[in-house]
Design a protein around this nucleic acid. Sequence first.
DNA 1: ATAACACATGAATAAGTGTTCATATGTTAT
DNA 2: ATAACATATGAACACTTATTCATGTGTTAT
Lengths: 126, 126
Amino acid sequence: MHKHENCNCNECPHHVECGGENIDKVKLFENKMITEEEAYYVSELFKAISDLTRVRILFSLLAGDMCVCDITELVGVSQSAVSHQLRVLKQAGLVKYRREGKTIYYSIADDHVSSILAMGLEHISE
Amino acid sequence: MHKHENCNCNECPHHVECGGENIDKVKLFENKMITEEEAYYVSELFKAISDLTRVRILFSLLAGDMCVCDITELVGVSQSAVSHQLRVLKQAGLVKYRREGKTIYYSIADDHVSSILAMGLEHISE
DNA sequence: ATAACACATGAATAAGTGTTCATATGTTAT
DNA sequence: ATAACATATGAACACTTATTCATGTGTTAT
C-alpha cells in the first residue's frame, strides 16, 4: 500500500492507519474469500426471490403443484406477468414444470428452495 | 367465475375447465396464503442480497467485523459504492455497526443472516 | 483551530427490471 | 381444418437501482 493524499480514487486507497491492524486478518481471509463467480451466482439466486410477484408465486406453490391460471388468480396479476415471472423462476432453478394436456403445472424445484423460503419468512417475523 | 370470451383482461379470468379441478385446493389455501405485506418484506429481504457487491460484502463480513476501508479493499469497488451498499444492508437489518474512533466496524447482524447466506452458497454448489 | 482521516450522502447518469399489450405457440375438441 | 383454450413471448414503457463524482459530517492529532 503506497503513500497517498486525501483522494477517493480507487487506485489510491486512502487509509493508512486502520489498515494496519486488520490487514493480517484480511490477507488471511483473502484466500478463502468467496469467488467472484460464486458471489454472482448467489446474487442471481436471491435476485430471483427479490420481487413481490415472484415471492407470492413461490409461496403459492408451497401448497403444491399449480397451473398458471390458478397462480394467476391467487397472485392477482395478469397471466402474462405470471408467465414472465415463471420464466425467471424456472431459469433460476427455483421451479420446475410438467405439461398435462393444455395445462402446465409448476412446482417448487426441490426442498432446498422450500427451506430458503421458510428462512426468509422466519427472518422477517422477528 | 363467469362466462367469457377469449380475452386476456384481468377481470375476466379466461380459464373454465382447469379451474374446476384445482379450485378447491386453491380456495382452501387462500386462507393460509402469505399476506401481501409478508411477501413484500420477504422480497425486500432477499432484494438486499440480490446484488453482487452486497453479496461480496456480506461474505467478507462472515470472517468477522470489518471496517469500511477493509471491505472496500476486499470487494474492490469504490469506497463510496461500499458505503451506499452498506446503507442498504443496514436498512435491511442484515448488518450492524459500531464506531471506534474514526473507524466504523460493520458486522453480520445475527446468526440468521449467516444461515441464509450459507444456504444460498450451498444451493448454487449443486 | 487546522489538517488529515474514515466514512456518509446527494445528485446525476447509465443500466436493469416488471408490467402491459398484442400476438404467437402448442393442445384438445368438434 | 377450425375454434377455443392454456400458456409463452417480443416490444415498449415506466420505474428502479448501482455506480461515480463531488462534497459533507464526525473524529483524532497537532
